[in-house]
Each structure stands twice: as C-alpha cells, then as structure tokens.
Design a protein around this nucleic acid. Structure first.
Lengths: 185, 185
DNA sequence: ACCTGAACACCGTTCAAGT
DNA sequence: ACCTGAACACCGTTCAAGT
C-alpha cells in the first residue's frame, strides 16, 4: 500500500472509532469521512461497507476474546469459565452501541465481513457451554447458538440509554438459571 | 373531520398496515403515502411521526391486551396467567417487525405517542408478575420493568429472520427459570 | 379545511476526471 | 495507484400555493 493510502487507512480507523463511540454503529459514513478530512469515496474504497469498517474496528477485540476463551478454560471451573468469558464478550459488544445488532445480522449472512468473527465468538461460547454441561454445571436444554442469541439479546437491551444496569442484572438472573456452581468465592 | 379526510385517514391506516407488515416499522413513509395515493405531506398531517402511525396501528391490539390481562387473572392460576398473557403480548409485538424496538425507545420518552401504551403493557405484566410472586409461583429477584425488558429482548431476537423458533424456545427456557407451576396440564 | 408539489438538508453509491 | 467532486436515487421535514 502506498504511504499516503496507509496514512488515510490508519486515520480513518481512529476517526471511525471516535465517531462510532459517540453515535453508534449507524453513524453517518459521510461524517466519518468528513472528520478524517477525506472524500466519502476514499472511505468507501478502504472499507467498502459499514460492516467492513466495523470488522476492522473489532478484529483486535475479537482475537483477544478467542485467546481469552482458552485462558478461562484452563484456569477456571467450567461454570466459572463460561460466565467470565461471557462477561468479557459483553464488554466488547457494549463498547460500540449497535455492535450486537450487526453481529446478529451477520451471523445469518455468510457474505458479511463480520460473519467469520461472529461464528468464532459463537463457537468459543459454545465450547465453554458444552464443557460446563458435561461437568454438570449448566443446564442441558440449550445449545451454543441459543446462548449466543440470549446473551446478544441482553446486550441489545443495554444499548438503550437507561437500561444498562437492568441488562446487567438480567444477565445475572439468566446466568443463575443456566449455570450452577458458577460464582467464585 | 371532513369526509375526504376521513377516507384518507382510513386508507392510510390500511395501507400502512400492509407496508409495515411487509417491511417492518422502519418502512419508508413515502412508500406508504405513494401506495395510498396521497402526498407525503398528507400522511404526515394525519400521523405527524412514525410513532403516531404505529400507535394508531397498535391501539386496538394494546386495548385487547389490557382486557386480556384481567381475563387471565380471573380464570387462571397466578403462574399460568403470567405466562399466557406474556405469550399474547409477544404475539402482538411480533405482528410487525420492529415494534418492540419502538416500544423500548418509547418507554423512556414520555413525549412519544407510544409511551402511554408501553407503560400500560409494562403495568399489566407487572401486576401479573406480582400476583405470581405473592403466590410463590415466580422468583422474586426481578420486577415488572425487568420482565418487560427481558421479554422485549426476546421479541427483538425473533424479529430477525431465522431466529423466531429459537426465540420461542428461549422464552420457554427463561420462563421455566422464572415461573414455577406455570404449565397447564 | 384539506391537499399538493416543490424545496431543503440529509443519506449511501457510483463513476468520470484529476494528480 | 490513489483520491476527489459531482451526479444519482433515496430519505423525512417544511411550507407556500392551490382547491
């Protein structure tokens, strides 16, 4: 990549992160380009769709979550590991408002740039759930896709101003119904 | 109201119901006006905002739900009544895709034309929940607003193509964790 | 009274023309 | 190679002008 193109790429990512932090994932692409001091068409060649831009913004966090799943699996009880990892997943998804809506859309659309990351997240959660179920630490009448959907729906709740605290408590309630022996002392 | 205005009003409601059934609550207002054969400005004087239009479309259903809450309370056990009514609430909300997003927004905005209806729905659910809790048929670590949020989040899930069936199963799982002695024989 | 069409300020997409 | 600005087809809002 040419040096000026690389500089544009980097600046666009920084600016996009700031704008999407303020306005959520439905922020205006024009606004992002404007604040980065480039034409809208330049933004769209670097990131052809909104989802491609989101994927670039979230890739590092998703990679960390994948590593984190291995960590908690090796150093925590099955029930604890599942809950700890889900909290980290939620923390990433609540970083930008609207992320989880994009993810739920993307997981059904194999052409989406976010698709692979979403499938990976669902997979990490499913692995931890299965481990907990095999240890008798989680109820067995739901699978990884169910859990991903359920937790995503609670993140959607917390995207609404004034509902963050309620969403957190509901997560605790739901987890207490799904996972047993999950709380560290 | 003048006769031609009344005719426009009625036709707009019928057309809006059809378009929103097809495209969800974010359907284009222009499209609704176009299909009704009136100017966009005419639609917007009859229904100044999207939420005002939604409120008109949903009012009858909400009124029925309010009556229904009384019915189930008088003729069912506390646990059964709560689950039955929630199923009816979900049925209304899944009639048009996007309704529950509008409702969750509206419940925080006392200026919204949908606000009163949303508060009423939350109130009906809360009353049935309290009754079940007092009968020992529901867990007591959540309140009516929690339940409204939780059920709304599951309806949001079912708004996504391919997740309806999963959302229904998750409702059963969540209800089994919250309500005891709820299932009719 | 009620309705209409046009003007306005936005949006994302596309593409010919520049450097 | 890369970028730009303009054109395009949308959106909801507003309002002067018609019937």
């Amino acid at each position: 990549m040419r040096a000026d193109a690389q500089a544009n790429h980097d600046r666009l990512l920084v600016v996009a992160g700031a704008v999407i932090t303020e306005q959520g994932t439905e922020a205006s692409m024009r606004e992002i380009a404007r604040r980065a001091g480039v034409g809208l068409a330049t933004l769209q060649r670097h990131f052809p769709t909104r989802e491609a831009l989101l994927e670039a913004l979230l890739r590092a966090s998703f990679d960390e979550l994948t590593e984190r799943a291995v960590q908690v699996e090796t150093s925590n009880s099955p029930g604890e590991a599942l809950v700890l990892w889900l909290r980290d997943f939620i923390a990433v998804c609540t970083n930008y408002r609207g992320v989880v809506s994009a993810m739920v859309q993307a997981i059904e659309d194999s052409e989406s740039p976010l698709h692979a990351s979403c499938v990976a997240m669902r997979g990490s959660g499913a692995r931890l759930l299965t481990r907990a179920q095999e240890a008798g630490a989680a109820r067995t009448d739901l699978d990884g896709a169910d859990l991903f959907a359920l937790v995503s729906s609670l993140v959607w709740l917390s995207d609404h101003p004034g509902l963050e605290a309620r969403a957190e408590r509901l997560f605790d309630i739901v987890m207490s119904a799904i996972v047993t022996k999950a709380r560290p002392a």
